[in-house]
Design a protein around this nucleic acid. Structure first.
Length: 819
RNA sequence: GGGCGAGUGGCGGAAUUGGCAGACGCGCAGGAUUCAGGUUCCUGUGGCCGCAAGGCUGUGGGGGUUCAAGUCCCCCCUCGCCCACCA
C-alpha cells in the first residue's frame, strides 16, 4: 500500500518532535508572527469542533512559517470552570484530577493530529503559576478603582447555585445549564467595563478591515450606545417637598407628547410616593408580585404590562403640564435612570400601557414634508389621539427638533444631552470552588485589603478538605481554616474573600502569558511582549464574538492605561469559524449523532480528517458532517501518493513541459491568494486540480523527469499547511531532505505572464462564436485583427456592418454589428 | 419589533468582483479489473431537442441598466442568524 496514513503520520510526528521544529525562536532574524487560537476547555476528549478549529489554526501558522515568518503557535487550556466541579458533585471526582486527566487526553489527540504547537509554552489557567498572575491582575484593577464591590439584584442560577454575569444569561436562562435564572440581592464583585464603553466602540475603527463585520456588529449592539437627553421632571406629592426626578429619553423631540410618567417598581422613591398618594398597601403587593417574577416572565413580550397609579403627579418642564405618575413592570431600574416620560403616540410599550390603563394618546405632529420616524405610533393610531405641535419647533424635521430641544433644555437648565450604554459592569465573583480565589482580605478594621504581592498566589485548599455540594455559599467558606487570616495592614483577625473569579477573567489575558509562561517574577516579559504582541492572527469560534473578545479588549485597554502595555487592541486580525453539526443538529451524545475524531483518525488518518473538514465549505460557515466526504479526500491523497511513487520509479530525463509549468504556476498564484483570504476549500480544490494536471501529463502525455518533479515538489509545499504529514512524506519520497515545513513558499514566475498566451473567446453580438489564441497583454488592434480573421467569426459577420468592437484585455472580444 | 445576512445542479460548493456559470469533490450512470462484493481505474453527468455536429434554455420571482448581469439598480417571495419591554 502506497498510502498508509497511520504509519506515515506517526513517523513524522516523531521526527518533528525530535527536531523541535515548532518551538518559536526568540533570537530569530525573521519577522515575528503570533498565530493564536482560542484555547480549549478540557472536558472529555476533543470533538469535531476542535478538529476544525485546530486545522484552521495550524494551517494559518504553517502557512505563515512557509512565508518566512518566525511563528509562535502556542497551546494551553482554559482549565478552571464549572464542569470540573459538577463532575465532583455528581460523581465524587476530584475536580483537579478530573481536569488534568482530560488535559492529557486532549494533548494525546492533539499530537495524533500533528498540530504544529509550540509545546514549550504550554499553560493551564488552573496552575498556581498562572492564577498567581490572574490574582495580580485583579489587584491591579482593584487598585485602579476598576474592581469594586456593591449590593446588586443579581442573576442567580438556582441549579449551579452561583451568580452569573449579564452576558451569561441567555434568554433568561443560565448559559451553561439552561435553568431559568432568578434574581437575588447580594454583595458582589464587579469590574468597571462600562468606564471603557466608548473606547471599546471607538477602537473598533482599527479593526474594521481585519475583523469579521458580524463580530463588530454584535459587539456594537452589545455595548448599545444611544444618544438622547436627561430631562428633569418635578414630582409633586402631597406632604412631600417637590423634587426633581431625571428621566432618560432618546426622543426629547417628543416631550410635548408625554401624557404620563413611569418609574420602575424598584425605584428608590417609588414607595415614598405611593405612601404620599395613599396606595402603600397596593404598592407593596405590586412590588412583591413583580419581584417574584423571573426576568423571562417579566420580559415575555406577549405579556400585558402591569402598573399602579401612585397618586402623585409630575410636571413636564417644557409645558408645565401635570401628568400622573405610575410604577410599571416594563420600566427597568437597570437602564437609564429607572424613570421615563411616557409618550404613547411614539413608543409601542407606552402605547400598550396607555391602552390598558386608559391614558391619553397625544401625537406630536411631524413637520410638513418630514418623514415619520419608524417608531412612531402616530400614523397607526392617529384616530385615537390628539395632535399637537411642539411650540417653537415647527417646521423642523425630527433630528433637528431633537437637537434644538436638547440645546434649549440645557440653556434653561432643565436637562442635558446624554449618552447611554446598554453595557453593564461585569459581575466577576462566583460562589464556586474551581476558580482563582479573589485575593482580597476582609478586615473589620481596615475594610477591603488586597493580599500583598509576596503572598500571592492565594492557593486553593486541597480538594478533599472542601464541601462541594451547592449550598448557595462558596465552597471555600465551608473549609474550617482556609478563610482565617491576619490582616496584612493591622495584624488583626480578618477573613479571606471566599468567592472565586469568573473563568472569563482567566481567559481574558492568557495570550499575554504565552509570551513568557515561565517567568515567575513578572506576568509577561516586556521585551518579548514587544516582539510578539499584538496577536497577528486570532482564530476561534463565533460563539465568543461578544463575551471573550469584549473582555479581552477591555483588559488590554485597562493594562494599557496602567502602563503595562503599549497597544490598546490585542488581536490585529480575527477569523471566526462556524460550527460542526450533524444532519442540521448540534452534535451531542444524547442526540446520538456524535462523530468521534478517534474512529476517523484510525480509519483515514489525521491528514484526511483535517483536509476533509477544511474542504467542506467556507471556514466561517457551519459544516454539516453529513456533507463531508472524507472518503473522497482520502482517495485524492492516495492518488497523489501513488503518482509520486510512479514518478520516482519511472525516473526519466529533465524535459521541460510548458503546459505543466503553466498549470503549476497558475496553482501557485491561485493557492497563495486563497490562503491569504482563508479560502481553504478552494485551496484544496486547486491542489486537486493540479494533481489532475500532473497526472494527465504523466499518464497521457508521457511527461517524465524534471517537469513532473518540479510540479510535485511545489504541490508538496503547498499541501503542507493542510495535510502536513503526507506533504512531508512526499517531499521525502521525492528525494529531498527534511523538512518541507522548513521550506519557502513557492513563488509565481512572472515571466510566464509575458510568454504566456491565452485562449480568448470571440463573440458576435454577445454570442460565443469562436476562440482565438492571443499573447497575454495583447493590444486591442492585435485582438481585433485575430478575431476578425477567425473563420467562424467571418462566417457570422458576413456582410453585416460592424458598429463597435468590445475588447476586455486577456478576456474577451465582442464584435457588435448593426442588426 | 429592531439589526445583519443568504437564495447557483440530486448534494457541499466555485466563479479573478460586470466578461466562456456550475471549478473541485460527493452522488449517480456506463465500462474495465474481480468468481463475487468492496477497492481501484477510465468515461459521462444543469435542463430540453438531437444518432451526431449543433441548437435552445438556465443562478428564488418580476422589471431595469449594459455590447455583456449569479454579480449593479427597483419591486416581490422565501429562509437563516443575532438582539429585544434598553425608554
Amino acid at each position: 500500500m502506497t498510502y498508509d496514513p497511520v504509519e506515515i503520520e506517526g513517523r513524522w510526528q516523531e521526527a518533528w518532535a525530535e527536531a523541535d521544529l515548532f518551538v518559536a525562536d526568540e533570537q530569530s532574524e525573521k519577522p515575528f508572527f503570533y498565530a493564536l487560537h482560542m484555547f480549549p476547555y478540557p472536558s472529555g476528549d476533543l470533538h469535531m469542533g476542535h478538529v476544525e478549529a485546530f486545522s484552521l489554526a495550524d494551517a494559518v501558522a504553517r502557512f505563515a512559517r512557509l512565508r518566512g515568518h518566525e511563528v509562535m503557535n502556542p497551546i494551553g487550556w482554559d482549565s478552571f470552570g464549572l464542569p470540573a466541579e459538577n463532575a465532583a458533585i455528581q460523581r465524587g471526582a476530584d475536580p483537579k484530577a478530573w481536569t488534568y486527566a482530560n488535559i492529557e487526553t486532549h494533548a494525546a489527540t492533539m499530537r495524533r493530529l500533528g498540530l504544529a504547537w509550540d509545546w514549550s509554552r504550554r499553560l493551564h489557567t488552573s496552575d498556581p503559576a498562572y492564577y498567581r498572575w490572574t490574582q495580580w491582575l485583579f489587584l491591579e484593577l482593584f487598585k485602579a478603582g476598576w474592581a469594586y464591590r456593591r449590593d446588586a439584584n443579581v442573576n442567580w442560577c438556582p441549579n449551579d447555585q452561583t451568580v452569573l454575569a449579564n452576558e451569561q444569561v441567555v434568554n433568561g436562562a443560565c448559559e451553561r445549564c439552561g435553568t431559568i435564572v432568578t434574581k437575588k440581592a447580594l454583595t458582589q464583585w464587579f469590574l468597571r467595563i462600562t468606564a471603557f464603553a466608548q473606547r471599546l466602540l471607538d477602537d473598533m475603527e482599527q479593526l474594521q478591515e481585519t475583523w469579521p463585520e458580524r463580530v463588530l456588529t454584535l459587539q456594537r449592539n452589545w455595548i448599545g450606545r444611544s444618544e438622547g437627553a436627561r430631562v428633569a421632571f418635578r414630582i409633586e406629592a402631597p406632604g412631600l417637598e417637590p423634587e426633581d426626578v431625571v428621566v432618560y429619553t432618546t426622543r426629547p423631540d417628543t416631550l410635548f407628547g408625554a401624557t404620563f410618567f413611569v418609574v420602575a417598581p424598584e425605584h428608590p422613591h417609588a414607595r415614598a410616593w405611593a405612601a404620599a398618594g395613599g396606595v402603600t398597601e397596593e404598592f407593596d403587593a405590586f412590588l412583591q408580585r413583580v419581584q417574584r417574577q423571573t426576568d423571562v416572565e417579566r420580559q415575555a413580550s406577549e405579556k400585558a404590562k402591569e402598573g399602579l397609579f401612585l397618586g402623585v403627579y409630575a410636571i413636564n418642564p417644557v409645558n408645565g403640564e401635570r401628568i400622573p405618575v405610575y410604577a410599571a413592570d416594563y420600566v427597568l431600574m437597570e437602564y437609564g435612570t429607572g424613570a421615563i416620560m411616557a409618550v404613547p403616540a411614539h413608543d409601542q410599550r407606552d402605547f400598550e400601557f396607555a391602552r390598558a390603563y386608559d391614558l391619553p394618546v397625544r401625537v406630536v405632529v411631524a413637520p410638513e414634508g418630514a418623514e415619520l420616524d419608524g417608531a412612531t405610533m402616530a400614523e397607526a393610531h392617529v384616530g385615537e389621539g390628539v395632535m399637537v405641535n411642539s411650540p417653537g419647533y415647527d417646521g423642523l424635521d425630527w433630528p433637528t427638533a431633537k437637537q434644538a430641544l436638547t440645546r434649549d433644555l440645557e440653556e434653561r437648565d432643565l436637562g442635558e444631552g446624554s449618552v447611554n450604554y446598554r453595557l453593564r459592569d461585569w459581575l466577576v465573583s462566583r460562589q464556586r470552588f474551581w476558580g482563582a480565589p479573589i485575593p482580597i482580605i476582609h478586615c473589620p478594621e481596615c475594610g477591603l485589603v488586597p493580599v500583598p504581592d509576596e503572598d500571592l498566589p492565594v492557593l486553593l485548599p486541597p480538594t478533599e478538605e472542601v464541601e462541594f455540594a451547592p449550598s448557595g455559599e462558596s465552597p471555600l467558606a465551608t473549609h474550617a481554616l482556609w478563610s482565617k487570616v491576619t490582616c496584612p495592614t493591622c495584624g488583626g483577625q480578618a477573613r479571606r474573600d471566599t468567592d472565586t473569579m469568573d473563568t472569563f477573567v482567566d481567559s481574558s489575558w492568557y495570550y499575554l502569558r504565552y509570551i513568557s509562561p515561565g517567568r515567575e517574577d513578572v506576568p509577561f516579559d516586556a521585551e518579548a511582549l514587544r516582539r510578539w504582541m499584538p496577536v497577528d492572527q486570532y482564530t476561534g469560534g463565533i460563539e465568543h464574538a461578544i463575551l471573550h473578545l469584549l473582555y479581552s479588549r477591555f483588559f488590554t485597554k485597562a493594562l494599557h492605561d496602567l502602563g503595562h502595555l503599549d497597544f490598546v487592541e490585542p488581536f490585529t486580525r480575527l477569523k471566526s469559524q462556524g460550527m460542526v453539526v450533524m444532519q442540521g443538529a448540534k452534535m451531542s451524545k444524547s442526540r446520538g449523532n456524535l462523530v468521534e475524531p478517534k474512529e476517523l483518525l484510525a480509519e483515514y488518518g489525521a491528514d484526511t480528517m483535517r483536509t476533509a473538514i477544511l474542504f467542506a465549505g467556507p471556514i466561517e460557515d457551519d459544516v454539516d458532517w453529513a456533507d463531508v466526504s472524507e472518503a473522497g479526500v482520502f482517495r485524492w491523497l492516495s492518488r497523489l501518493a501513488r503518482l509520486v511513487d510512479e514518478h520516482v520509479e519511472a525516473g526519466g530525463d529533465g524535459q521541460a513541459d510548458e503546459e505543466l509549468r503553466r498549470a503549476t504556476h497558475g496553482a501557485i498564484a491561485g493557492v497563495t491568494s486563497d490562503f491569504v483570504a482563508f479560502k481553504y476549500n478552494t485551496v484544496i480544490a486547486k491542489l486537486m486540480e493540479l494533481t489532475n494536471a500532473v497526472s494527465s501529463a504523466f499518464r497521457e502525455r508521457g511527461v517524465r523527469g524534471a517537469a513532473v518533479q518540479q510540479a510535485l515538489e511545489t504541490l508538496s509545499i503547498m499541501l503542507s499547511p493542510i495535510a502536513p504529514h503526507l506533504a512531508e512524506e512526499l517531499w521525502h519520497r521525492l528525494g529531498r531532505e527534511p523538512f518541507v515545513a522548513a521550506q519557502s513558499w513557492p513563488t509565481f514566475d512572472p515571466a510566464l505572464l509575458v510568454e504566456a498566451s491565452k485562449q480568448v473567446p470571440v463573440q458576435v453580438n454577445g454570442r460565443l462564436r469562436d476562440t482565438v489564441t492571443l499573447p497575454v497583454g495583447a493590444s486591442r488592434a492585435d485582438a481585433e485583427q485575430a478575431a476578425r480573421e477567425s473563420q467562424n467569426v467571418t462566417r457570422h459577420l458576413e456582410s453585416r456592418e460592424v458598429v463597435k468592437v468590445v475588447w476586455v484585455p486577456d478576456r474577451l472580444v465582442n464584435i457588435v454589428t448593426r442588426a
